[in-house]
């Protein structure tokens, strides 16, 4: 049972990570490409690491071996690290682009520049 949940989490995480990259490839301008990079990757990463940790627990329970706490601790540490650094680096890139004078694409020109 636990293994199936772990597999589901992993596949779901892989799917989110994949569609995040697809978004980066397909979005029309630089600033909208930031959105998939910041969010979809974070969720995908969290799901995959949660699935892996659950899988480690499930396998050691099935074999009645002691749970490998060190590996789980490392998995959580990597996940937290990515959770903090992914938005931070997204923000760093966005700020650099903004300072570099990159203008955002605002779609069709039918919308007036009212909110500037």
């Amino acid at each position: 049972m636990m293994e199936h949940v772990a597999h589901g989490l992993m596949i779901l995480g892989g799917f989110f990570a994949f569609s995040g990259s697809l978004g980066i490839l397909r979005m029309p301008d630089f600033y909208s490409r930031l959105h998939p990079a910041g969010t979809a990757d974070t969720l995908g990463q969290m799901l995959v690491f949660a699935g892996l940790a659950l899988k480690v627990i499930a396998v050691s329970l099935a074999e009645e071996a002691p749970v490998d706490g060190l590996s789980i601790g490392k998995l959580i540490a990597i996940s937290l690290l990515l959770f903090v650094t992914t938005p931070a680096s997204t923000h760093a890139i966005a700020r650099a682009a903004q300072l570099g004078g990159l203008k955002p694409w605002t779609g069709e020109k039918e919308r007036e520049d009212a909110d500037e």
Binding site: I11, A17, S21
Partner: peptide
């Protein structure tokens, strides 16, 4: 499968 999916994303 997960690794291959993420490889595709990469």
């Amino acid at each position: 499968i997960t690794a291959l999916l993420i490889l595709g994303g990469a």
